[in-house]
Nucleic acid binder design. Structure first.
Length: 480
RNA sequence: CGGGGCGUAGCGCAGCCUGGUAGCGCACCUGCCUUGGGCGCAGGGGGUCGGGCGUUCAAAUCGCCCCGCCCCGACCA
């Protein structure tokens, strides 16, 4: 329950994560619905902020929101061979409705490429209809065998962007543009450093030509795919007969893209910043940036403290914790585990001196400041905390990234890494995008996370499995 | 689907082996007292013991069946 101790990261990282989610009042398992969760107000508040940051950027890049049905005719999924093969194991299917067996079952959307294909076919006739840039905020369902709150649940929330273009070049630009948007939000809003890259063929989205991802490193060194952007080529255009007439009067299939991030981001956020005391939220995503805890003994002290506290709370837009019957100590713990970036303490001594104590969640540092400077100091502190959190995460990413020049080295470096015990690393090695390479990695439960878009190392080299030349090192890690 | 664990008050658990009609901590309610890092004291409310069947004078406890949840693995954003 809320108020219970939090398992230290050292002892068991996976349990720590669960504890932080629950103690931080972010979410709880929906015990009555297998694999699903209840996202509580503190967690939903973070999602709302992420949504806004993302949505603003989608609009700024010319996209419009719409909404498509939750149910998809089963036959739609089957139109793209690779797509149906990839998704069929995890589909939930509606076969009975209104008390009758349906003639054709509906699948609950696992993603909407097929519906989009159908409607794009209706909406697109000529090159004048292109590019078509849409996005949907929705829930999707994938029947996962193993779930973890935020990281993988049966039902989850996301946005899925879908676009159609007249040329492959233009589509590819879109794919990379949106990957940049994701990296921007991850790094500058969530303070979570990521590596942009291309997925290997065996890890790509079912039905795509190529998939791109941003990969983040959690505190246990495991990788988390935090966002994906797909170059769908003409695969869905052909499957759903989405043709347009070019300026020259020729018919051609459209070039499509799709891209998405989900509530999984919140899991990444938690595993990037939080500590053994609970949640730590970067100021830009925190539903409550600052809370004031009043301290008093007698009634006359209470009156004075509360008057000053509510005045400052109004000025700062901070939340005043005016709950009666709770000691200040209990309140400090309460806000600490919920990840509030800044907590102010205001007692009789401070009121008398015209001061207030400001405390930072991430560092735990506490200092008295003049009340008149509270607003400025708060703004500075939030700004500094945002940057410090990013710097700290980036430092961790760098110090846990290692180079390897043989498959044995890679295997050794990742041998002890698990979600519970930690010890994960990003191992940079030369490796080809080939099935035998992925298969070899799988033997020790690692994967090629992606092939970075920019080479931060020593350029070309020989693949550690096939010996063939490849032009850069790839990210190999164990992942969620 | 395989391996492990667990279902007893809102939450966390004890009781079960050795049957006798349910208890502890936290939370909650009332009063007093306290308040600069989880206050204290006193009193109080709250239970189909996951479900079904069976054994028995008697089942939380023994037996059989079922259901659910969590963790670990195989699949995956």
């Amino acid at each position: 329950m809320i108020g219970s101790p939090i398992t230290p990261r050292e002892k068991d990282f996976a349990t720590w994560y669960q504890d932080v989610v629950i103690q931080g009042d972010m979410a709880e398992p929906a015990e009555i619905v297998k694999g699903c969760m209840v996202i509580k107000p503190n967690g939903w508040g973070v999602w709302e902020r992420l949504q806004r940051e993302l949505d603003d950027r989608f609009k700024a890049t010319g996209h419009e929101n719409l909404y498509l049905p939750l149910l998809i005719p089963e036959s739609f999924l089957k139109k793209e061979a690779e797509h149906v093969e990839g998704f069929s194991p995890e589909l939930a299917v509606v076969t009975v409705a209104g008390g009758k067996e349906l003639e054709e079952p509906y699948v609950i959307r696992p993603t909407s490429e097929t519906l989009v294909g159908h409607f794009f076919g209706k909406w697109i006739q000529s090159y004048r209809d292109l590019p078509l840039l849409i996005n949907q905020w929705a829930n999707v369902m994938r029947w996962e065998l193993r779930t973890r709150m935020f990281l993988r649940t049966t039902e989850f929330l996301w946005q899925e962007g879908h676009t159609a273009h007249a040329s492959h070049e233009e589509a590819l630009e879109e794919v990379l543009r949106m990957l940049d948007v994701y990296a921007d939000v991850a790094e500058n809003v969530m303070a979570m450093p990521v590596i942009k890259g291309v997925k290997t063929s065996s890890e790509k989205f079912a039905g795509a030509l190529r998939s791109y991802s941003i990969e983040a490193m959690m505190q246990n060194g495991l990788a988390l795919q935090a966002g994906t952007s797909h170059d769908l080529g003409q695969n869905f255009g052909k499957a759903f007969d989405v043709q347009f007439q070019s300026k020259e009067g020729k018919l051609d299939y459209v070039w499509q893209t799709s891209w998405g991030v989900s509530t999984r981001l919140i899991g990444g956020l938690i595993m990037t910043h939080s500590d053994d005391k609970g949640l730590i939220l970067p100021p830009k995503v925190a539903p409550r940036k600052a809370v004031i805890v009043p301290i008093y003994r007698k009634d006359e002290e209470r009156a004075q403290v509360m008057e000053t506290a509510s005045k400052i709370a109004r000025e700062l837009g901070a939340h005043l914790d005016a709950r009666e019957g709770q000691t200040p100590g209990a309140k400090f713990f309460h806000w600490e585990r919920r990840g509030v970036p800044v907590v102010f303490e205001l007692g009789p001594r401070d009121v008398a001196a015209g001061k207030i104590v400001i405390k930072r969640r991430d560092t735990g540092t506490k200092e008295p400041i003049a009340q008149s400077e509270a607003a400025v100091t708060l703004a500075e502190t939030l700004d500094l905390m945002q940057r410090d959190l990013f710097a700290k995460a980036q430092q961790r990413l760098m110090s846990n990234t290692v180079l390897a020049n043989s498959i044995q080295e890679v295997e050794e470096m990742l041998a002890d890494a698990t979600a519970e015990k930690g010890g994960g690393k990003f191992v940079m090695a030369h490796a080809k995008d080939a099935p035998e390479v992925d298969a070899r990695m799988k033997e020790f439960k690692a994967t090629v996370r992606n092939i970075p878009l920019t080479d931060g190392y020593d350029g070309p080299g020989k693949c550690i499995i096939t010996g063939e030349n490849v032009d850069r090192r790839v990210v190999i890690a164990k992942a969620y």
